[in-house]
Design a protein around this nucleic acid. Structure first.
Lengths: 229, 229
DNA sequence: TATAATATTATGTCTGCGCATAATGGTCTT
DNA sequence: AAGACCATTATGCGCAGACATAATATTATA
């Protein structure tokens, strides 16, 4: 067999794992040996094996060699898009409605999440995203006011979500998904009965030094976060 | 400046994006130009830019060049581990309890998800995972009986979850996350009030040709799926 | 015998080169 | 002016060789 294409090599390696020619936990041949077998350069084999290692299928250590992962901690990748694009990708019309904006001290729960000294006034934004006119997402955001110095944006027109990705680059981010029963506030906004199970996304983002924003997104029932492995 | 390390180059590029030297949507210099500037080989720049493109920070097209992503569809990666390891990673003791196992025709909802003709008898397993003796996860699984030919495993001892990762390799998989109010069954199993919001994971896996399994995991309240970007 | 120094080995990375591929932009034709 | 054609160009991939690095295995030393 002669394979000189790294994606073909990746497929071949995956096939051998699936067929149990290489069992979980066992060491597979060295890059050099595989390069010889496939009739290609070592770099090409390396590219294929690195890709599988990043996906969690293989485990690699210098000198120790490459082995088939015993407990494949598969890396599933999620695509986190701007809300408007997510709705438009479903073929629906995006609507946006700012409910309230005010300056207030960030609550403990938010401050501690951001590693923030309690107290400073942050901008509190509450808004609703609609898909074809139907409530889709209730957004409760706390925003560091120091990031919007120059021309203070009009969040009634443009969602903070979009303004941020366009104007503020971040260094680190943090996302958590959970489930929660709809509060009275959330139930009213999304137009669902009190206590309905909602899919919650909480996102924190930091700049080089200071925190930028914390947002809690409550998705309308029926929402599914989807991925392939 | 002289950078010959691809990770340093990646950091430098990210810094330039964060500092708005390269604005979202704009085309950045070619690999060749950057290689000249950093005093390294083109392949090294390419490695750094490819990595950022895979993360969703850059968009690259042949001839058109490399540009800073306008709407950064950030790729968040989730680590999907075996339940036992997930619990042990929290420093808790894993417990497992098989509730019921029976052969029955897969319900419509499951069959359609797996692209299956309605009707065939599949193995239905219901089980509970415990963390430090407390209900952690209720597992409702449908399993293609043809994958467990030879020595039929004893699922009372070993969870189907673990048996599968050890004995059956899969070609494709599919994961969806959502929220749901606890059914009477789920509420009883997890020991929570009826209607409690539960975090639901649904996973389908296929072999080369035939489907292998479909599982619905209902997590006890408090569960959070976590990732960094 | 236990420990420290050393050699070995497989992966990780960089270099410089060439060719492949996909867009783009201009030119030529009708 | 519209469409077909072709040269150009930036990324994408592969190759061969070299050195770096981390982990292991071996040998030498106290």
């Amino acid at each position: 067999m002669t394979l000189t294409n790294w994606e073909d090599i990746r497929a071949e390696v995956q096939a051998r794992i699936r067929l149990r020619l290489w069992a979980p936990g066992s060491v597979i041949p060295t890059e050099e040996a595989l390069a010889y077998e496939f009739g290609c350069a070592r770099a090409t084999v390396s590219r294929a094996l690195r890709d599988l290692a990043e996906a969690g299928v293989l485990e690699r250590r210098r000198k120790a060699g490459t082995r088939v992962a015993l407990h494949p901690v598969r890396k599933a990748t999620l695509d986190i898009a701007v809300t408007r694009l997510e709705i438009e990708a479903r073929g629906q019309v995006h609507g946006y409605h700012l409910i309230e904006t005010m300056l207030a001290p960030a609550p403990m729960a938010v401050a501690s999440r951001l590693g923030l000294a309690q107290g400073p006034d942050w901008l509190h934004l509450r808004s609703l995203h609609l898909a074809d006119g139907v409530p889709f997402l209730y957004e409760d955001r706390w925003l560091n006011p120091s990031v919007l110095l120059d021309p203070v944006p009009d969040f009634a027109e443009l969602s903070a979500n979009e303004w941020l990705v366009m104007h503020v680059s971040y260094a680190r981010g943090d996302i958590a998904f959970s489930a929660a029963n709809a509060s009275a506030d959330e139930a009213g906004m999304l137009g669902v009965p009190l206590g309905t199970a909602l899919f919650i996304t909480e996102r924190s983002t930091w700049g080089e030094a200071a925190p930028i924003t914390f947002v809690r997104l409550a998705h309308a029932p029926g929402y599914r976060l989807h991925t392939a492995v």
